[in-house]
Amino acid sequence: MDVMVWELVGLGLILVAILGLNGKALTRRKGSRPKLVYSRERQAERRDPTIDQLQKVMQASFTKRRIMNGSEYGLFRLVEKELPQINGGYRVFAQTCLGEIIGSKDSEAHACINSKRVDILIIGNTGEPLAAIEYQGSGHYQGNAAVRDAVKKEALRRAGVRYVEIFESYTDETVRQLLRDALRPAPQTAATSPAA
């Protein structure tokens, strides 16, 4: 009896393979007889959205875009040059997405910061984000920029990442001092024991 069951299973698999090779698949709706549907139609229903993305990208043209303006790039270079002097194994990144460096169990809160970026990010030698630097140039506070910055600042504060604002009027030495202050380890508070 077991041999007959396996033979029927084998025949069923062969039938499915033959139908698949002919570009057709067997589907059945509840309460109806089986009907043949072309596999292309079924594939379209299950189509991976990244295939559509690839097709759109292949049909479009793209150009390079600068990720920083001249003033931001000047600040980036200053930070990049100063970090080895602080000697902590730090690395610097430009235009980093907050959703990649901080997280939240609250998906709605995370969605609020997911696509926001910081101008410059400093990470430690373990890859952990330590400080986010925002350059505030002359044209920065337009529209709702102050509110956007407040959202970033609060999310970073809650995640334990320092937020440093650099204004265009700051001297190089002021920027260097702000960097040293931001990368100084936070003071440890002594644990207090409950009163007996």
Results as ranks from 00 to 15, higher is better:
120 I>Y: 09
56 K>F: 08
86 I>P: 00
24 K>S: 11
177 Q>G: 05
35 K>Q: 15
192 T>Y: 05
101 I>G: 00
3 V>Q: 13
11 L>D: 12
141 Y>W: 06
43 Q>A: 14
98 L>C: 03
84 P>R: 00
45 E>L: 13
109 A>M: 13
173 E>W: 02
181 D>Y: 03
8 L>D: 14
90 Y>T: 00
56 K>E: 08
138 S>I: 12
28 R>Q: 15
13 L>Y: 15
187 P>Y: 01
9 V>M: 14
123 I>R: 08
72 E>T: 08
71 S>N: 04
8 L>K: 14
145 A>G: 07
91 R>L: 05
185 P>E: 09
24 K>W: 14
139 G>V: 11
76 F>A: 01
187 P>F: 03
7 E>T: 12
107 S>W: 04
72 E>V: 07
85 Q>D: 02
154 E>K: 10
3 V>T: 14
146 A>C: 04
61 S>V: 02
19 L>N: 13
187 P>E: 10
143 G>D: 02
154 E>F: 05
32 S>H: 08
183 L>A: 02
181 D>S: 05
50 T>F: 13
51 I>V: 08
172 D>E: 05
96 T>C: 07
178 L>T: 01
78 L>H: 04
123 I>H: 05
45 E>A: 14
93 F>Y: 13
120 I>S: 08
80 E>W: 04
108 E>Q: 11
186 A>Y: 10
56 K>A: 09
177 Q>R: 08
32 S>K: 10
146 A>F: 06
191 A>G: 03
161 V>D: 02
19 L>H: 12
167 F>Y: 08
74 G>C: 02
16 V>R: 12
39 S>D: 12
91 R>E: 07
152 K>Q: 03
155 A>N: 01
30 K>N: 09
50 T>A: 15
185 P>I: 07
164 V>L: 05
152 K>M: 00
111 A>Q: 07
34 P>F: 15
95 Q>K: 13
183 L>T: 02
118 V>I: 15
114 N>P: 11
4 M>I: 15
190 A>T: 03
82 E>S: 09
60 A>I: 00
26 L>V: 15
96 T>I: 13
120 I>V: 08
183 L>G: 02
167 F>K: 07
82 E>H: 03
67 I>N: 12
3 V>R: 09
138 S>H: 10
189 T>S: 04
39 S>Q: 11
167 F>V: 03
1 M>D: 12
142 Q>A: 10
134 E>Y: 01
103 G>K: 14
20 G>Q: 12
94 A>R: 13
10 G>V: 11
20 G>W: 15
98 L>I: 03
126 T>Q: 09
3 V>P: 11
153 K>Q: 06
109 A>S: 13
